[in-house]
Lab assay of single mutants.
Amino acid sequence: SGVNQQQLQQLMDMGFTREHAMEALLNTSTMEQATEYLLTHP
């Protein structure tokens, strides 16, 4: 699906929903950016 499943699982383990985590990974290129994205786009 174009996203790193390991990163997706890590974000879900942090408490984010699958949909939200996927959106973040699709819009960013690193785990750090994805986390930042999730925190700034709740």
Rank of each mutant, 00 (worst) to 15 (best):
N27E: 05
M14R: 06
E19V: 08
L25C: 03
M22F: 09
Q7G: 06
E36S: 05
R18S: 08
T17S: 14
M22G: 04
Q10W: 09
L8M: 07
E32R: 04
R18M: 12
Y37W: 15
L39V: 08
G15H: 03
E32Q: 11
Q9M: 12
M22V: 13
H20V: 12
T40F: 08
S29R: 06
Y37C: 06
L25F: 04
E36N: 06
F16G: 04
T17Y: 07
A21G: 04
R18C: 05
S1V: 13
T40W: 07
H41I: 11
G2P: 13
V3T: 08
V3K: 05
G15R: 01
M31I: 14
H20A: 14
P42S: 15
Y37E: 05
S29Q: 13
A24T: 01
Y37G: 05
M31W: 13
T35W: 15
E36M: 07
Q5V: 13
Q5N: 11
A24M: 01
L11E: 00
P42I: 15
Q7M: 13
R18V: 08
Q33Y: 03
Q10V: 12
V3P: 08
T35A: 10
R18F: 09
L8A: 03
F16E: 02
F16H: 09
T40Q: 11
Q9V: 09
E23V: 10
E19G: 09
R18T: 07
Q5C: 12
A21N: 00
L8E: 01
Q33F: 03
T40G: 14
N27P: 00
H20R: 14
T40C: 09
P42F: 15
Q10I: 14
L11N: 00
L8F: 04
S29F: 10
V3G: 05
N4M: 11
L39Q: 15
T40P: 04
Q10F: 12
Q10R: 07
T35H: 15
L25P: 00
G2H: 13
M22A: 09
Q6V: 12
Q6D: 13
S29G: 08
D13R: 05
T40R: 07
G2S: 12
L39I: 10
M12E: 06
T28Q: 02
H20Y: 09
Q5R: 11
Q7E: 11
V3R: 04
P42T: 15
A21R: 00
T17W: 06
E32D: 09
Q9D: 09
T30Y: 02
Q7K: 07
E19L: 10
V3C: 04
T35G: 04
E19H: 11
T30N: 10
T17Q: 14
E23R: 07
L39E: 15
R18K: 12
Q9F: 09
N4P: 08
M22S: 08
Q6L: 13
S29L: 09
D13F: 06
Q5E: 13
Q9C: 07
E36A: 09
L11K: 00
M12T: 06
E36K: 06
E19R: 06
M12I: 12
T28C: 04
L38N: 02
N27H: 11
P42V: 15
Q33M: 06
E32W: 05
M22N: 05
L26T: 09
S29V: 09
A21Q: 00
L8D: 00
L39M: 14
G15E: 02
T35S: 05
Q9Y: 08
T40N: 15
Q10S: 08
H41Y: 14
T17C: 08
L8G: 00
L38Y: 03
H20W: 13
D13V: 06
F16P: 01
T40D: 12
N4K: 10
N27F: 08
L25K: 00
S1W: 04
G15Q: 03
Y37H: 09
E19D: 13
E32G: 05
M22T: 14
T17H: 11
L25E: 00
A21E: 00
S29N: 12
L38Q: 03
A34I: 03
L38E: 04
L39W: 12
Q6F: 11
A24K: 01
P42G: 14
S29M: 09
M12G: 01
A21H: 00
E23S: 07
E32I: 06
F16Q: 02
T28I: 01
V3N: 06
E23N: 10
M14I: 05
Q5A: 14
T28W: 04
Q9K: 12
Q9L: 11
N4H: 10
N27I: 09
T28L: 02
E23C: 05
S29H: 12
A21M: 01
L38A: 08
T35K: 15
Q6S: 13
F16A: 09
E23M: 10
H20P: 05
P42M: 15
L11P: 00
T30V: 02
A24Q: 01
G2A: 14
S29Y: 08
T28M: 03
L11G: 00
G15I: 00
N4T: 09
G2Y: 11
E32L: 06
E19T: 09
T30H: 03
M14K: 06
H20G: 06
M22I: 14
T30G: 05
T28V: 04
E36D: 10
M12F: 03
Q9R: 09
Q10L: 13
E36T: 05
Q6I: 12
G2I: 13
G2N: 13
R18Q: 11
Q6W: 12
Q9T: 08
D13I: 07
F16S: 03
Q33P: 01
D13A: 14
L39Y: 14
E23A: 09
V3A: 07
T17V: 11
E36W: 06
E36R: 05
L26G: 05
L11T: 00
T40K: 09
N4S: 11
A24E: 00
L25H: 01
L39H: 15
G15A: 03
T17D: 13
S29C: 06
H41S: 09
S1Y: 03
E23W: 11
T28E: 02
Q5W: 12
Q10A: 13
M31D: 02
Q33W: 03
S1H: 14
F16N: 04
L26R: 11
Y37L: 09
E23K: 07
N4E: 08
Q9E: 10
N4V: 10
Q6R: 09
A24R: 00
Y37Q: 07
E19I: 08
A34V: 03
M22Q: 08
Q5K: 14
M31Q: 04
L38M: 05
L11S: 00
V3M: 08
F16V: 06
S1K: 12
M22W: 10
M31L: 15
H20S: 12
L8R: 00
T30L: 02
L38C: 03
E36L: 08
Q10P: 03
Q5P: 14
M22K: 07
A24D: 00
M31Y: 14
E23I: 10
L8K: 00
L26K: 10
E32T: 06
V3D: 06
T17G: 14
H41D: 10
E23Y: 13
E36V: 05
Q10Y: 11
E19Q: 11
E32P: 04
L8H: 03
V3E: 06
H20K: 12
N27L: 10
T35L: 15
L25W: 05
T30W: 01
M12P: 00
S29P: 07
Y37F: 05
L38T: 02
M22Y: 11
E19P: 10
E32H: 06
Y37R: 03
L26F: 07
Q6A: 14
A24Y: 01
S1I: 14
M31P: 04
S1D: 13
Q9A: 13
M22E: 11
L8P: 00
Q5H: 12
H41Q: 12
T35P: 05
L11R: 00
M14V: 04
Q7Y: 15
T28K: 02
Q7V: 07
M14N: 04
G15K: 02
T35F: 15
L8T: 03
L25T: 02
L11Q: 00
H20D: 09
H20E: 08
Y37P: 05
E32Y: 04
G15V: 00
L38F: 04
Q7R: 07
L39S: 14
S1A: 14
H20N: 11
M14Q: 06
A34N: 01
N27V: 11
G15W: 01
Q10G: 05
T17R: 11
Q7H: 15
Y37A: 07
T17F: 08
N4L: 11
L38R: 01
A21S: 10
T28S: 07
Q6C: 08
L26C: 03
Q6H: 13
D13N: 12
P42E: 12
A34F: 01
L38S: 02
E23Q: 10
A24G: 04
Q9H: 11
R18N: 06
T28N: 05
L38H: 03
L11I: 05
S1P: 14
Q10M: 12
A24C: 02
L25I: 08
Q9S: 10
Q33K: 06
A34W: 02
Q6E: 13
